[in-house]
Amino acid sequence: MDPEILTSAILDGLLIGGAYALVAMGLAMIWGVMEIINFAHGDFMMLGALFTFFLFTSAGLDPIISALISFAPIFALGVIVQRGVINKILDAPLLTQIAATFAILLIIRYGVQAAFGPYTRRLVSGYSDIYINLGFTTVPLPKVIIFVTSLIVLGLLYVLLHQTDLGIAIRATSQDRRVAQLMGINVSRIYDVTFGIGVGVAAIGGGLIALFYPIFPEMGGFFALIAFIAVVLGGFGSVYGAYAGGLIIGIAESVSALFIEPALKDVVAFLIFIMIILVKPTGLFGRGD
């Protein structure tokens, strides 16, 4: 195989992986701190994409700024969902937790379909047609933007979790909820913030993905499954592991697309998913749960 084709496929996958990583990091954070698997995670991402689209088309705001702004409303929605639903099922049987977060998925996904129609929207902005020439290959600017943003968000999350009082409280809660409570940490508040940040980061991802990916109510399903793979790869609950997992899946996907029919690319992604949870259920960088 032509090494240049392979290199550009790897590069393209790495950039796309930034998008997957943005969605996956929030999922990992929620799982790590709250031990809740958020089945609706991809749908919060879709809300971010839709919000960005509407800010761009009706307010004329720059789509990148819109995507960053989308963090705020989705954060707020996340806090509401956490208070109204998640908080009530934290100690419920696992089957109830799955059913409840899956119900949130249905309400968001099909509520959006009911409110805004089942249409596919495309965000066509000034960024869409710009390519960066790297000599041996060209890369589209939107993908570079999303990759750079994912790195920045990763850095911000690191600073938040390790350099601030809030971050220390979040990590303490994730280690032991009861002891954290005894130390005077308002655990319920920590859960609000964690869930809000988790889905808010996914929303930023959604908003930026919208720069080159069609927006439709069910788009979150695919990204959620990818994010689950990334979280598994990264070892449950590790934000940094999930980030690496996202990049790995991006690369694996775009390289495998060189060898198989593109229409079946998603089948391969899901097969890889099942294989991974079979072969290494604690993840590549897992701490063994």
Binding site: V85, K88, I89, A92, T96, A99, A100, F102, A103, I104, L105, L106, I107, R109, Y110, G111, V112, Q113, A114, G117, P118, P217
Partner: peptide, 19 residues
Amino acid sequence: RIYGLHVTVLGVILLVISL
């Protein structure tokens, strides 16, 4: 013209039951 409404209702039913 309101698509997906019945699935939204399904989601609400499922949520109420699980809570």
